[in-house]
């Protein structure tokens, strides 16, 4: 495994405001690396330092072994970037934008397949977003930095974009992704860094983060026969039980699912429409970023 992006003890402040206090991370080749965190946590500043748009106050950054500040000429050839809210000239057509951007790179992908005559000003938010992603990929980059990848996209377009990003990774690119959609991080990212107040508070795979969060599990079902609450509340794994619109909602920790289902089975009560909600990255995120 080779490190494609290396950030060591990054610090960046704007005047008196410290945007990034201390961030260190390493992204391996072929990895999809997510950066999540509350608004103003320093996510965008971190990736802007990686992109070479900002000069760090302290710390070291290497991308493909290059210094984004000093070797930006070479790095820009090999890095594709999508900025959070950058636009294009109102009257620039989609095909013209793709042709223009592909002319910047040594080995661009074929933009002609993407040709379209619509002007940028006439595109919907989702179409603009897709164009912005296309422009980040047109140079056939080795590293792609995407800030708020699917903001403004409808659910279908979001899924399509995820598939696309996985395809880009499969051909060998490394991807750094800033997002505030937990579902996106969970779906796409191999590893996720949770940033809060300019610091990394957790860094692991989405599943490991979720498991470590120790968030309660919730079991919802519709009992086929009358059920005495005490049967379940007596179980040590169950922390609470409530009834909502004819459904029973049981919250608990540990092996609560097995405990509840076997207790029900012992009385011959069928649990209809059984659903189990397990700790997700979102739970982990809230737990991690709440304790400031």
């Amino acid at each position: 495994m080779t490190a494609v992006v290396e950030v060591r003890e990054l610090r960046k402040s704007y005047g008196d405001t410290v945007a990034v206090r201390d961030v260190s991370l390493t992204v391996q080749r072929g990895e999809i690396f997510g950066i999540i965190g509350p608004n103003g946590a320093g996510k965008t500043t971190t990736v802007e330092c990686i992109e070479g748009l900002r000069t760090p106050d302290r710390g070291q950054i290497r991308v493909l072994g290059l210094d984004p500040g000093r070797d930006h000429g070479e790095l820009r050839q090999r890095m594709g970037v999508q900025l959070q809210d950058s636009q294009l000239p109102e009257r620039l057509r989609v095909g013209e934008a793709l042709r223009l951007f592909s002319s910047f790179y040594r080995a661009p992908v074929d933009w002609r397949a993407l040709m379209e005559r619509t002007k940028f000003g006439k595109l919907s938010g989702g179409q603009r977003q897709r164009l912005s992603i296309a422009l980040a990929l047109v140079g056939n980059p080795e590293v792609v930095v995407l800030d708020e990848l699917t903001t403004g996209l409808d659910p279908q377009a979001r899924r399509d974009t995820w598939t696309l990003i996985e395809g880009v990774r499969d051909r060998g690119a490394t991807i750094v992704l800033v997002t505030h959609f937990m579902e996106e991080a969970e779906w796409l990212c191999d590893r996720v860094a949770v940033i809060d107040s300019g610091r990394i508070v957790a860094l692991d795979s989405p599943a490991a983060l979720a498991a470590a969060s120790d968030a309660p599990q919730r079991i919802t079902f519709r009992p086929a026969a009358p059920l005495d609450d005490a049967l379940l509340t007596a179980l040590p794994e169950v922390t609470s039980l409530e009834r909502r619109r004819g459904e029973v909602v049981v919250t608990g920790t540990g092996n609560v699912v097995t405990a509840v289902t076997s207790a029900l089975a012992s009385r011959g009560i069928v649990a209809g429409q059984l659903r189990v909600e397990q700790a997700s990255l979102e739970d982990a995120f809230i737990t991690l970023t709440a304790q400031r």
Binding site: V94, L98, R99, S102, S103, Y105, R106, A107, P108, V109, D110, A113, L114, E116, T118, L123, Q127, R130, L131, I133, A134, L137, V138, N140, D160, T161, L164, G167, V168, R171
Partner: peptide
Amino acid sequence: PTASAPARPQALPAGTPE
């Protein structure tokens, strides 16, 4: 798709950069 990003990116044959 108005700007469907490249699904199977393939580098252009070299020698034709604008």
